[in-house]
Structures are given as structure tokens and as C-alpha cells.
Simulated assay, not measured.
Amino acid sequence: MPPAKKRARSYDPARTRGAVLAQFANVREAARGLTPEQLAGPTRLGDWTVRELVAHIGMALTAVHGALAAPAPPKATVTVAEWALGTAVRAAGIADRTREVAAAQPDLDAYLAGVEKDLRAALEEHPGTRLLDTTAGAVSVDDYLVTRTVELVVHTDDLNAAVPGLDVPSERQAVATATRLLADALATKAPGGSTEVRVPPYAVVQCVEGLRHTRGTPPNVVETDPMTWIRLATGRLTWADAVAGAQVSASGERADLGELLPLLS
């Protein structure tokens, strides 16, 4: 008999919305203080400038009300974990659109203010169960907002890395949600029960084919902190560098996740 399908993780819609809006407000406040020289500076995202990175963060939310403007699809076709695994194929198109938006928005603060206003209006008008036709598949508004926490937390970290001395905070709820989504994405990509991945205090998942443990300490264990996990899962940090820098502990012959990462890039 095949193993029972795991029940999808549920997320509190009100807390997710609050986390998305709070994290976006953190970015807005930080971007408001950036100088022209800082905005023109490089990032770790290929040839993107800081200006383009900030514009892209705005785009992460315009995607919500943009999708709401289109007719609702008949049914959901992807889970939030599956969304994470399908991002790489969309990277080129996203990069081109980011450059267009950055060039068309000389006043980034006004742009971000408009993004927030439009998002709030859209969320007040539509229920969280309303389906959206996104580039990754059909998902509900509530589930799509879960994916926005990944975009916001990851790119907040990119922004901090790009601007020396900048320390944009990441909301605890946003980090928790992003951590759980990416942990579930790993379990979706490599289903199984031989390896336990722990990201305290937010997530524990079992993955990788092999003998499933039923009690006691599992034979293969990976453990790290939330931001290290998010960087690993999104390609900001390599597995080899994380292990060498003692940012992750891995024990057992099936605890090497190097070939499974990154999940989102």
C-alpha cells in the first residue's frame, strides 16, 4: 500500500496578511532613506542595481492585485510548496520586467506607496478564497500571500547585503511562514522519511527516500537556523559553504542536501 499523502500545511490568513504588509512597510521605510549612489549600487542578483531590487520587491505585491484583475480560474492547480519549485523557469521574464518597472519609476517611494494602497484595496474587495491565475498555476489569494512572504524576506536579505550598514528588519511571522513553505518544498521535491530537517523554532520535515524512522533520534538529521535555511533554499548560500562555516549541522549518510538545493532561484 502506498504511503498516505501528507496533509498540506495550513497558514493563518490574518497573520499572513499582517506579516506581508509589515515586511513591505519595513522595506519602504529603508528604501526612503537610500541615496542616489546607493540606489545605483550593485546587488548579489546578477547585474541588478539596488534600484531594480527595490522595484522588484514592489512587483512581488503588484502580482497580487494584477492577478485579481483577471478572471478567476475554475480550480486550484498548485500548492504553495509547488509554487516554490517552479520559480526558476520564470526568472528571465521577471528580470526583464523588473528593469522596465525600475526605469519607469523615478520616485520609488511614490511607487511603493501606490503598491501598498492598491494591495490593501484589493484585499478588502476580494475574499481570501478567491482563486488567482498566476504564472506558477492557480492558487487562492490566501495561499498566494504565503508565497509573498518568501519574496519579501529573501529580497529584504538581498537589500541588506547590497547596502553596507543597512539593517532592514524581517518580521518574525514573515520569516516563520517563509521557513515553513521552503521546508515543505524540500519535502515535496524529495519525498521520503529517511532524513529529518529541523529549522527551529519554525519547521521540522522528513524527506529523502530510504528507511523511515519511527521512534527516537532519526539516523539522518540536518539542523540550521531560519535565515540560513532560507538562504540555502533560495541559492544565496551553498550547502558546502554552510557546512564549512558551521552554519548547518548534518549527520548521517543521507544528510547531504547539496544536490537538492537550491529549491528557488
Score class of each variant (00 low, 15 high):
residue 26 N to S: 13
residue 225 D to Y: 01
residue 250 A to R: 08
residue 106 P to H: 00
residue 49 T to Y: 14
residue 200 P to M: 00
residue 181 L to G: 09
residue 157 D to N: 02
residue 127 P to V: 04
residue 230 I to A: 08
residue 176 A to S: 15
residue 260 L to F: 15
residue 29 E to S: 14
residue 121 A to P: 08
residue 51 R to V: 05
residue 253 E to W: 15
residue 41 G to D: 15
residue 174 A to P: 12
residue 129 T to V: 02
residue 16 T to C: 10
residue 33 G to V: 10
residue 230 I to Q: 07
residue 106 P to L: 04
residue 118 D to M: 15
residue 249 S to R: 04
residue 177 T to W: 04
residue 164 P to Y: 00
residue 135 T to Y: 14
residue 226 P to H: 11
residue 59 M to Y: 15
residue 157 D to R: 12
residue 126 H to C: 02
residue 48 W to L: 08
residue 240 A to T: 13
residue 79 T to M: 03
residue 68 L to E: 07
residue 90 R to A: 12
residue 76 A to M: 05
residue 13 P to A: 05
residue 168 V to L: 04
residue 148 R to K: 09
residue 18 G to H: 08
residue 166 L to M: 03
residue 84 A to N: 01
residue 32 R to K: 10
residue 58 G to W: 13
residue 198 R to T: 03
residue 24 F to W: 09
residue 26 N to M: 05
residue 141 V to R: 00
residue 87 T to P: 11
residue 104 A to K: 00
residue 239 W to M: 09
residue 162 A to H: 05
residue 256 D to G: 12
residue 93 G to R: 06
residue 56 H to F: 05
residue 121 A to R: 15
residue 91 A to C: 09
residue 203 A to F: 07
residue 152 L to P: 02
residue 75 K to I: 06
residue 184 D to Q: 01
residue 14 A to W: 09
residue 16 T to K: 04
residue 182 L to G: 13
residue 165 G to P: 02
residue 79 T to G: 07
residue 238 T to R: 11
residue 22 A to H: 02
residue 177 T to I: 10
residue 69 A to K: 02
residue 114 G to V: 02
residue 224 T to F: 05
residue 67 A to R: 15
residue 99 R to L: 05
residue 179 T to D: 13
residue 116 E to R: 14
residue 250 A to D: 12
residue 82 E to A: 08
residue 132 L to C: 09
residue 30 A to R: 12
residue 169 P to F: 14
residue 125 E to V: 10
residue 70 A to Q: 14
residue 235 G to N: 05
residue 193 G to Y: 03
residue 221 V to M: 03
residue 154 V to W: 07
residue 51 R to D: 03
residue 174 A to T: 04
residue 139 V to Y: 13
residue 194 S to I: 08
residue 245 G to M: 13
residue 138 A to H: 05
residue 10 S to M: 12
residue 22 A to W: 09
residue 242 A to C: 07
residue 231 R to F: 14
residue 58 G to T: 08
residue 123 L to D: 08
residue 7 R to Y: 07
residue 161 A to T: 02
residue 242 A to E: 06
residue 191 P to A: 00
residue 2 P to Y: 02
residue 19 A to Y: 11
residue 228 T to N: 04
residue 136 A to T: 12
residue 132 L to H: 11
residue 12 D to S: 06
residue 130 R to D: 08
residue 40 A to S: 07
residue 125 E to N: 03
residue 12 D to T: 06
residue 121 A to M: 10
